[in-house]
Each structure stands twice: as C-alpha cells, then as structure tokens.
Amino acid sequence: MMQDQIPENKRPYEQAYFPAKPNKFVLFMHTFLPWQIIRFAALNLKIVRLLMKGH
C-alpha cells in the first residue's frame, strides 16, 4: 500500500505509528463479562486499600 493511503498520523515515523496497540484478544477481554466481574472486584479492593492508606 502506498503511504498516502494510510492516515497521516499512522504513517512510519508519525506519532500513532509508535504506541502499543491492543490485539483482538485484549480488546475482547475489555468487555468479556466474567473477566470484567473479576476486574471490578479487584479494582474495588485496590481503591479500598488506597482509602485505608490515605485516611
């Protein structure tokens, strides 16, 4: 593909060329209910620990 067919910021050496991008599995896990229920619980726990340290 010619470079001018790629959006400008995604071409080689442009800013969006460098960052890590999530693959399909990672994107799927972002909204996969069983995993997100675990993450919800884990995040709540982390926030409670933060509250206990700072108060």
């Binding site: 896990m29 972002h30 909204t31 209910l33 995993w35 997100q36 229920i37 675990i38 993450r39 919800f40 619980a41 884990a42 995040l43 709540n44 982390k46 926030i47 620990r49 933060l50 340290k53």
Partner: peptide, 14 residues
C-alpha cells in the same frame, strides 16, 4: 502495588 492503570468494562461499572 497501589499504582495501576487498566481499561475495561469493570472500570466503567466503578
């Protein structure tokens, strides 16, 4: 152990 970042639906529920 208390510094973190993640993207997900669980965070949206929070």
């Amino acid at each position: 152990s208390l510094t973190s970042g993640e993207v997900g639906l669980g965070a949206q529920w929070i």
